Amino acid sequence: MSAYLHLQTIPDLFTFFEPHSTPQHPLIAVVDFSKVDKRIDEETRILTDLYCILFKDYCNNSIRYGRKVIDFKDGSLVCMAPGQVIELDAESFEEMRGWGIFFHPDLIRATTLNHKMKEYTFFSYETAEALHLSDKEKQVLQDCIVKIETELQENIDIHSQSIIVSNIELFLNYCTRFYGRQFITRKSTHGSVVGQIEQFLSDYFGRPDTSDKNLLTVKYLADQVNLSPGYLSDLLRKETGKNAQEHIHFYMIEEAKNILLSTNKSIGEIAYALGFEYPQYFNKLFKQKTGKTPVEFRNMN
């Protein structure tokens, strides 16, 4: 029978991982998995209200996130935002090597990092899109962890939060850099994805039968190549300079131009054919992308 846990706070986390220990800080913790002596019940599902950053060199147990098995054998890092579910198989934490950083959103709520978190799009990536680290990169991130742990061992004072948050931000900035490197080193694979996306969009908007179309979303597009919306957008931006939404808009507007110039369909009919529920939204997007309304574009050509 599967077990379900909801970890809402750092004390909850310690109750699960280290029941005989006391948190050094109420809003953040660093867990050394090699020191965790715990047996996991079969198919344990954990919902956490914390930001979770997990790194493992290797492990015997299976961890699933988004229903996919996380492969940590090469040494990889996964970042999860609050509200995500982790699923653990029935295994021991013995012989695991790695660490986890867990922090509550309240730790950063009144800081500039809180507003910057949306820029760290890797928190929405799937596990198959984990960050695979070189030895040098591992050491850089480990140095950040050491600084956070050192600060946690000090008595909490008026400087504690800013120092801890600054080191978290430094850690995340390094992750952004390392993901940039990963996009470059996997360029050949990513080039294939770009080709698939462009072919799909060309076919999708070039279909004669458009009566059953809904407005194309980034999630739907990402599903076509088995990637998360965030990862696909970042991949496309690195490869082409345009994110996934911009690619959708480009092909949509190009098809709109074709229809405007080759048929007598009304603007409403064209909008519905492209998936818009309301023609005024189509008008607004078309003018935003071309500088002209659909009617003005048709009349000029």
Rank of each mutant, 00 (worst) to 15 (best):
S166K: 12
S134Q: 08
R186D: 06
C144E: 15
E151N: 12
Q182T: 01
E129A: 11
K187H: 08
V165A: 00
E137S: 05
T150D: 15
I145N: 12
S160R: 12
Q142L: 11
E149P: 00
K147W: 07
E137G: 05
C144H: 14
T185K: 05
D135K: 14
L172S: 13
S188I: 09
I156L: 02
S166P: 00
I164L: 15
Q153T: 05
A130G: 05
E149I: 10
D157M: 00
A130T: 03
D143E: 12
I163N: 07
H159Y: 14
V140L: 15
N173Q: 11
D135E: 14
Y179D: 01
D157N: 05
T176E: 13
I163T: 12
E129S: 10
D143M: 08
I163H: 02
S162D: 11
Q153K: 12
I168Q: 09
T185Q: 01
D143V: 07
S134F: 11
A130M: 08
S166C: 08
L133Q: 07
S160L: 06
Y174Q: 13
C175V: 10
D143T: 10
A128H: 15
Q182A: 05
R181N: 04
D143G: 00
D143L: 11
E137P: 01
V165T: 08
S166M: 08
L131K: 01
D135T: 09
D135Y: 06
F183E: 02
N167T: 07
D135I: 08
L131A: 03
K138D: 05
Q153H: 14
R186H: 09
K136F: 11
K138S: 03
N155K: 09
T176K: 12
C144D: 14
I148W: 09
S166G: 10
I156F: 01
Q153A: 08
L133I: 03
V140F: 10
C175A: 10
T150I: 07
R177H: 06
Q153L: 10
R181G: 02
K147T: 13
Q139G: 07
Y179V: 06
E154Q: 15
R181T: 04
I145H: 06
L133E: 04
L172A: 14
V165Q: 07
R186E: 10
L152Y: 11
C175H: 07
I148G: 08
L141D: 07
I156P: 01
L131T: 05
I184T: 04
S188Q: 09
L141V: 07
A128L: 15
D157Y: 02
R186T: 00
H159E: 14
I163A: 06
V165M: 01
T176C: 03
T176G: 00
S162G: 05
